[in-house]
Design a protein around this nucleic acid. Structure first.
Lengths: 338, 338
DNA sequence: TTGAAAGCGCTACCAT
DNA sequence: ATGGTAGCGCTTTCAA
């Protein structure tokens, strides 16, 4: 069923059918009505592939995330998807499985598909996120993770701030030997580490290199990475009395290690993560965390993306920083003790 | 950058360029080499929209899930995405937000986009999942939830079996007053309910209507639905000593209600859910569950979908049933007591 | 082995 | 207000 068939049945030209669909005001009401009737009778839906080919716009937005299973990215995808859908866009989702190589291939593929814009939570660490000379002809937005020295559109939180308020929170509840389980070398990890150090300095607490451990994975298995990192910390001669974890999955692994070790949370070791996942409250010990407004990230990104598409010529990249916020729960609740 | 430009620079016709890309054996090796060189120099990637228009195949698979945030569907999406990507397909994902109306619109939209096949975890309850007379011209596969009386391709678990083995597990650990918090009127919910009853009958336990409560939501907020349903059960004169929950999110809510009520799990009330979510082990009480092999669902679906696309003429619909399996954890571990 | 050309379904321009 | 038609970038005959 195509526009030609409709035209034949309605005894008008295909141009008129097209206008009835896309610019009804340019068709005589009576004609439009007749065409519309046929359209409905035959349950016609335009072939969006053909439309895309001629207009040069697919109404497709490409999204690349490290993992769909990680709630944080799932939440972003969900809200992004909702807002875009309401404006007639569809989401072409690719998971990079935390692999830079897959991410690059996926980006190339999405570009080849003609997406109107790209949204990327990158796992790459270099500025050249696109394969050499694959200059994206479309606007793109980085979410959650930014890239040092790359002036790109960005939506996320200020990670140094995340690290700072999380650490300061632990200090405020009375902890003094605060460790950090960090992530790999990406912006979010280094930002949070900086914030952590910054908070310690401000409160005149020493920065002990032994108290900083890097978890070697941050995807679904961040859990076990957090577990081993925490064990390492607990094995120190003077173990920490608090741990700020890179994110909630890491914190969940750390929680397991601490409890297995016969220690109590928060009495012996207080714990805070980041991301504010849905299930945080249902955990062994309800987990304190830093809320990163994942929904808002999705919404803001959707709106930014649509703005970018509408723009004629690329403007100055926009950075949208959302405010992180500490959500205190049992895992850091030492108020009774201090 | 298009095929025409390549042809000009390589001093061949566009047909030859096309053949070099799609059927190299039909081009003289020397010519092919020359063309390929230009292709690489200019970093050419074919316009897949144009290709789709002429071939009639987009290499796009549409996926509609009730929610991306629900880990179970996220896991399916992830594995589906991986397998399809490896075969050159992309996933066009739409979340229906548990709303049948949005689901129908999304389906129409995806069809309009020309997806080669559809994968649907439907929230609809009638056989007519497609809007009236929008006859899908493409194969589709239902996952997780089937539809009574609709002979469609299906991949999922045998839900009656899920209910049966979950309930029997509770019986085996010594529970006798076993309640069920069920889901809304979809196949998975009614299947599990049947299995629950079946197990009770087999073991000569009474089926008490008061012990069957229906949670009115099953998405992210299934948590709170489970909470209220459990409170209702705990308020009975003789409260149950075990609850089989429709799924893990519901069980998590029930867990909260039980603990808040000052009762112990599993000593006072044993608990089992379904879905085997990643975080089950990290919960307040590690949750017993029924594993539904979400990864395998994704993989099987991907393979089935590709088979269906390759088929010339639609064959008999295929039903792929995976074996559910009880995963016993603390929440039902009453072995010491019995 | 290669090239010319039709045509996928649609939009957009120009003409009427 | 409507129709004719070029052409988006590609694949696929058919001819040479």
């Amino acid at each position: 069923m195509n526009i030609k068939e409709i035209a034949k049945r309605a005894r008008v030209s295909i141009a008129t059918v097209s206008r009835t669909i896309n610019a009804p005001h340019r068709v005589r009401p009576e004609t439009a009505r007749r065409v519309r009737k046929i359209l409905e009778e035959l349950d016609y839906y335009p072939n969006l592939t053909a439309r895309a080919l001629v207009t040069g716009r697919t109404n497709l937005i490409g999204l690349v995330v490290p993992s769909l299973v990680h709630s944080f990215f799932a939440e972003i995808s969900q809200s992004l998807s909702r807002v875009l859908r309401e404006s007639g866009y569809s989401l072409l989702i690719g998971s990079s499985d935390e692999d830079p190589e897959i991410e690059r291939k996926t980006l190339t593929h999405l570009l080849s598909r003609g997406v109107d814009a790209l949204v990327i939570a990158t796992v790459q660490q270099t500025k050249e996120i696109f394969p050499k000379s694959v200059k994206p002809r479309v606007p793109y937005v980085l979410v959650d993770r930014s890239l040092n020295g790359l002036a790109a559109n960005f939506v996320g939180v200020d990670d140094e701030n995340v690290g700072f308020i999380a650490t300061e929170h632990l200090i405020e509840v009375g902890c003094t030997r605060i460790a950090h389980i960090g992530g790999l070398q990406i912006s979010t990890a280094s930002g949070r580490l900086e914030g952590y150090k910054h908070a310690l300095k401000k409160h005149h607490l020493p920065i002990d290199p032994d108290h900083i451990v890097i978890a070697n994975r941050m995807d679904e298995s961040a859990d076990s990475a957090g577990y081993y990192a925490a064990r390492q910390l607990l094995g120190l001669k003077i173990p920490p009395d608090a741990i700020f974890c890179y994110n909630d999955p890491v914190a969940i692994g750390a929680m397991r290690a601490i409890l297995e070790n016969g220690m109590r949370i928060p009495e012996d070791v207080a714990l805070i993560g980041s991301g504010n996942l849905h299930l945080d409250t249902a955990l062994r010990v309800p987990l304190s965390t830093v809320d990163q407004q994942s929904d808002r990230i999705g919404e803001c990104t959707a709106n930014l993306v649509m703005d970018l598409i509408r723009e004629e010529r690329p403007k100055q990249p926009k950075k949208i920083l959302l405010m992180p916020r500490v959500v205190g729960r049992d895992s850091s609740n030492r108020s009774q003790k201090n």
